[in-house]
């Protein structure tokens, strides 16, 4: 520290070897040993008490607390992950259920529509059959009427033709002849 001045002083005074100029090794200057040992022991005792009473328990507690928090966080993360997996499973199950349900509904609806369709078609078929039978009857009536009219008109026409030809036509034979013709 203040060796500069002391060195210069001792040299100036010509008195070498006193004070701060080293004679040989200062390490084996036994006069300074009690002093060094005394202060060393005090230093070590202070450091020991500071460390063992304040510092080391504090740092140890902080490290333990941090370790605990990390462990808890990892456990919590594990839990959350488990929950997420469960939620995904539930979602997939719900999706599958819904799909099956939708299939059922579609099948039901299809069956119902098919049934309705079938009955409607049967009804329509019946109606059509009734209508066509009715029409056929009407056509048969009309045809019968028409045949009757044709016979009458033919008879009359044949009588008229025969009369106009100047000969008295026998009504019976004309009718028979017309009937024969009509059959042919």
């Amino acid at each position: 520290m203040s060796s500069e001045t002391t060195v210069v002083d001792t040299h100036a005074a010509g008195a070498a070897g006193s004070g701060s100029e080293a004679v040989g090794m200062p390490q084996i200057d036994f006069t300074s040993f009690p002093n060094q040992i005394f202060w060393l022991v005090i230093t070590l005792v202070i450091i020991y008490f500071v460390l063992s009473r304040i510092s080391l328990p504090r740092i140890g507690a902080v490290l333990a607390e941090r370790q605990g928090i990390i462990t808890n966080d990892i456990a919590a993360a594990e839990d959350l992950k488990q929950q997420a997996v469960e939620a995904e499973d539930a979602y997939n199950k719900a999706l599958a259920d819904a799909r099956v349900e939708a299939g059922h509904i579609v099948a039901d609806a299809r069956a119902e529509i098919q049934g309705e369709l079938d009955s409607a078609m049967a009804k329509a078929d019946a109606e059509i059959a009734a209508k066509s039978a009715e029409s056929e009857a009407a056509i048969a009536d009309i045809r019968k009427d028409a045949m009757k009219s044709v016979k009458a008109v033919a008879n009359a026409t044949a009588k008229e033709i025969v009369a106009s030809m100047g000969s008295k036509a026998d009504a019976k034979s004309v009718t028979a002849a017309v009937a024969t013709r009509l059959k042919g």
Binding site: S2, S18, A22, W39, L40
Partner: peptide, 24 residues
């Protein structure tokens, strides 16, 4: 080796065991 000399902090020549020195 001068740097290793044990010196009293507040002057004086004699070093007792309790003397505050550069060690202190």
């Amino acid at each position: 080796m001068d740097q290793f000399v044990v010196k009293p902090l507040f002057g004086g020549e004699h070093i007792n065991f309790y003397t505050p020195t550069n060690v202190t």
